[in-house]
Design a protein around this nucleic acid. Structure first.
Lengths: 328, 328
DNA sequence: GTGAAAGCGCTAACAT
DNA sequence: ATGTTAGCGCTTTCAC
């Protein structure tokens, strides 16, 4: 009883009742008389008692902990995701055990392992791809696993993701509408599944429409990489359109185009992004982009978490083109 | 034993040893012979055993959980803070229990209460001001409390904060150097302690230097508020300088100045921000600002967490002016 | 080095 | 409605 926390036993003694009476008082469905309850509550307050959730979780086997693991926690998109998710969990009475998988996919497995040790009830992966073996472990241990923006080829896992290919299609069509003849697809060296889906769907559509497409990918998924892409690519004056698989890339690309390569956007060059992060709406950019609904994604995650049906499924959240000014 | 997790007892049985042998095998200092350890390890692996940290924490009274509470988790500055902190905790073998205090200070007390129930070893508050009563409770229960960018008038709490007033001073001197005669101080309606410190220190210095200062505060601490401030204030052509207590505000202010009010920055108007968020460095802005070192702040927090000395103290982290192009 | 036993703080039968 | 008892899974004396 170190650390000076009061135990239920002490409360019971002080209130002159049994330990169980105390327990019941603090249990939603517990049947206790008003008088006892009052005594207990008073004693508890006087002593500064609070239930020990760890001990509580130990017998009923419900830790109330939801593991959240992800990379790039400070990128605009992911941080928004985390913001909404942590809030939603809290509102549902669940606790969020956050594990920062900074060093990417390499150490996502040990992190999930750690979550097992804490008996997390479920695990949601914001970014990064967990190895198949870990997924099996989750299943084996009855830990629900929810993957965001990840599309794996298995039916025993919850996946909620934005409709990347449709989004890429929207971007492509918009660029066609802008009469682009030669377009660039910009992504990063990380080549996450979502990025790949967007890039390939876009390229495919563009090819179908008879446009020439050049692809570029390098560096992390950042503003800087987008800027670099712009500098690398825009020497080619024929390029009159670009699809950046992420807004961050797009914003960097725009700046390179305008400030470094002397292109007017959208007059000379149409640009479409993906995500719709807050910065995309800033007056200096006003990026035309494909919006992922973080709210909808989060909502799906939360219901998947709550639902008793372990029926695992693939949930595709619709995306929409938000028209601003970077596409002619 | 629901949820299908294997217990130490099962491992013991399979390995043909006692429960304690298993426990010792998984305890850093435990004395076990090589042969036993090997048997245990094998059995554990075969069965897929992992220690139950909840149960573990129950007896030795170390949950290993660090509570992290904050608001505005998706703002660039806070999210960076959270990113580094969660990573640092993980590296030190601590777990991060994240509580999103979205609805501001109103519900920060219940959140800390919740953290008590989880027997968090320490609590770090990223943003939002905890009521004094809660602080007392922390002390009473031996839960270390660490406040970031919060300066309370008590000596029993760890506080690590950037040197706001010096930063504001740097901003003021820079604006004086730019020969500004009439400057605006922009902050938000939230008027957090840090914001207030910056604004007042700035105003004071400006007054000392004989410049006229007008202050504006309204709305949340956002890009939009900064934009609004620009629109509201820049009708006054005499204003030739501005200090925004946050980069987000500054960026909005710049856009309003340039795009809405027809001012050239820095030719007509010098602007200085505070924080140095990534966007401040983007080519379209290149904001001159006062940098808070998130790394240094995080480092201090982590050592405060680790140190055995409960000697509580106020740690002030230095700031620096980063010169870009928005101040003449 | 190893096992038996007690205990961490709590909940959930089981009686009464 | 209330107390008694038996765990939950683990660590830690305490003997041997």
């Amino acid at each position: 009883m170190a650390r000076g926390f009061v135990t239920a036993e002490e409360v019971a003694k002080k209130a002159g009742v049994s330990r169980s009476a105390v327990s019941r008082t603090f249990t939603p469905g517990g049947s206790v008389s008003q008088s006892v309850r009052r005594k207990v509550l008073k004693a508890a307050r006087d002593l500064g008692y609070r239930v020990n959730r760890l001990a509580q979780g130990l017998n009923n086997d419900r830790s109330n902990l939801i593991g959240v693991v992800g990379t790039n926690l400070s990128s605009p998109f992911i941080s928004k995701q985390l913001d909404l998710l942590s809030l939603g969990l809290l509102r549902r009475g669940l606790q969020c055990l956050l594990l920062n998988a900074a060093d990417a996919r390499k150490d996502i497995a040990p992190l999930i392992e750690l979550l097992f040790e804490f008996r997390a009830q479920a695990i949601v992966v914001l970014s990064g791809e967990p190895p198949a073996s870990i997924i099996d472990e989750c299943m084996a241990n009855g830990v629900r696993l929810i993957l965001i923006n990840q599309r794996l080829d298995r039916t025993d896992t919850n996946m909620v993701l934005s409709d990347d290919s449709h989004g890429a299609d929207l971007a492509a069509m918009r660029l066609i509408e802008a009469r682009c003849q030669k377009v660039a697809v910009i992504s990063s060296a990380s080549q996450t599944p979502a990025q790949v889906r967007r890039a390939t769907a876009f390229s495919k559509r563009m090819a179908m429409e008879g446009a020439e497409v050049v692809s570029w990918f390098d560096g992390p998924t950042s503003y800087e990489s987008g800027y670099q892409a712009g500098c690398d690519l825009l020497g080619d004056k024929a390029i009159d359109g670009a699809f950046c698989v992420t807004d961050l890339l797009a914003l960097g690309f725009i700046d390179a185009a305008r400030l470094e390569m002397g292109r007017r956007v959208p007059e000379d060059l149409s640009i479409v992004g993906f995500d719709d992060i807050p910065q995309a709406g800033w007056k200096s950019y006003q990026l035309t982009t494909v919006r992922q609904s973080v709210d909808a994604l989060t909502e799906k995650v939360l219901t998947a978490l709550a639902s008793d049906e372990p029926e695992t499924r693939l949930q595709i959240v619709p995306v929409a083109l938000v028209e601003r000014i970077t596409a002619r």
